[in-house]
C-alpha cells in the first residue's frame, strides 16, 4: 500500500444531549491512500457526517489521532494546543465571574444611573453644605459608574482575547481547510449573494491577503473559469445560485471545492439532494476527478453511489468496518 495521505486512529466523539451523552464514534480508525476513492456508508444518524467533519478538520474529536501526510491535524497534547486550551479555560472562568459581577451590579447601576445625574446637578449645594459627605457620595457614585462602564469593556477585551486564542488553537485545522481539503455538502451551501464565479473564487480569496489579490486576481479568475468549464458550467458564470438547478448548484459546489487544488475532496452525501439523473451525472464527475488522481472521501447512505468508490467502509455502532 502507498504511504497514507490521511490516517485516523481511534477517533471518539460524543454529543451532550441534555443530561445524557450520546457516544457517536467509538474508536474509528481509517487510512486513505493518495488517489483513493473511499466511501463511508451507514444508517442515518450513525455518525458518518460527524466522522467526515472530523477527518476534514471541520470539527475536533474528543479523543484519537488524525494525521495528514504524517502531520498531526488536531493539536497534540503537550504542545501549543494544550497551553492554549488551558489559557482559554482560565479566560472562560474569568468571563463567567465578570458576568456574575455585571448581573449583580445591574440593579445597583440602575439606581446609580438615576442618582448620579441628580448628584452632579446638586454638586454645588452638596459641597457647600456638607463638603465631606458630598465628596464621599460623589466618589462612590463615580466608582460605581466606572465599574459599570469598565466591566463590559473588560469583558469585550476578554472575549477578543479568547477569540484570538481559539483562532490560534485552530490555526492548523484552518490552514488545512484553506490549502489541502475541499468540501462538497449535501445542501450545496453556496452564498446566495454571490454569482457562480464569485462562489467558486471564494476559497482563493480566503487564501490570498488583500495586498496580494490585485496580482493574484487574474490567475484566480482564469482558474475558476477553467474549473467551471471543466464541469460544464462555463456559460453560467454570472448566474446566482437561485437561478440554477440542484445538479448545477452541486457542480458549482464541486468547482468551489476544487479551485484551490485540494489534496483530498470530502463529499458529504453529494447526491442526497439530487434526482437520479442529476445524481448519476454528479457521480460521473466525481469518478472523472478520481480518474485524474483526486483523493476523495465520500459519505453516503446509498449503496449504488457507494459502489462507485474504490473502497467501501460501513459505520456501525460507532466503528468502521470494511465491506
Amino acid at each position: 500500500m502507498n504511504a497514507a495521505e490521511l490516517t485516523a486512529r481511534n477517533i471518539q466523539k460524543a454529543y451532550e444531549m441534555g443530561r445524557g451523552r450520546l457516544q457517536v464514534l467509538r474508536g474509528c480508525s481509517l487510512r486513505v491512500a493518495p488517489g483513493e476513492f473511499v466511501a463511508i456508508m451507514g444508517k442515518s444518524g450513525s455518525g458518518k457526517s460527524t466522522l467526515l467533519h472530523i477527518l476534514g478538520a471541520l470539527d475536533a474529536a474528543d479523543a484519537g489521532e488524525i494525521r495528514f501526510h504524517d502531520e498531526d491535524v488536531a493539536p497534540a497534547r503537550g504542545s501549543e494546543g494544550r497551553f492554549v486550551d488551558r489559557l482559554d479555560r482560565l479566560l472562560r472562568g474569568l468571563q463567567r465571574v465578570l458576568y456574575v459581577i455585571l448581573l449583580l451590579l445591574l440593579p445597583v447601576g440602575g439606581i446609580v444611573f438615576v442618582l448620579v445625574p441628580a448628584l452632579l446637578l446638586a454638586v454645588p449645594a452638596i459641597v457647600e453644605r456638607w463638603p465631606q459627605a458630598g465628596a464621599t457620595h460623589l466618589m462612590a457614585a463615580a466608582l460605581c459608574l466606572v465599574l459599570l462602564g469598565a466591566l463590559p469593556l473588560i469583558l469585550a477585551v476578554l472575549l477578543l482575547a479568547r477569540l484570538a486564542l481559539v483562532d490560534m488553537g485552530e490555526r492548523r485545522r484552518t490552514l488545512l481547510r484553506r490549502r489541502d481539503f475541499g468540501f462538497v455538502f449535501q445542501f450545496y451551501h453556496l452564498l446566495p449573494e454571490l454569482n457562480v464565479l464569485e462562489n467558486v473564487l471564494l476559497p482563493r480569496m480566503v487564501g490570498t491577503p488583500l495586498w496580494r489579490w490585485p496580482r493574484e486576481r487574474a490567475r484566480a479568475h482564469a482558474d475558476a473559469v477553467a474549473v467551471l468549464r471543466r464541469i460544464g458550467l462555463g456559460e453560467r458564470l454570472t448566474h446566482r445560485p437561485a437561478e440554477l438547478s440542484g445538479g448545477e448548484r452541486q457542480r458549482v459546489a464541486i468547482a468551489r471545492a476544487l479551485i484551490h487544488k485540494p489534496r483530498i475532496l470530502f463529499a458529504d452525501e453529494p447526491t442526497g439532494n439530487l434526482d437520479a439523473a442529476a445524481g448519476a451525472e454528479l457521480m460521473a464527475l466525481l469518478k472523472r476527478l478520481h480518474a485524474e488522481g483526486q483523493t476523495i472521501v465520500m459519505v453516503t447512505h446509498d449503496p449504488s453511489v457507494a459502489a462507485q468508490a474504490d473502497r467501501i467502509l460501513r459505520l456501525e455502532d460507532g466503528q468502521l468496518r470494511q465491506v
Binding site: 483562532d167 484552518t174 481547510r177 452564498l191 480566503v206
Partner: peptide, 18 residues
C-alpha cells in the same frame, strides 16, 4: 450563520470572520 459555516469550511479563520 450558514454562510459563516461555509466561509470557515473554505479556510476562513475565526478572527477573520469576526
Amino acid at each position: 450563520t450558514r454562510d459563516i459555516g461555509i466561509l470557515k469550511s473554505v479556510g476562513a479563520s475565526h478572527a477573520g470572520v469576526a
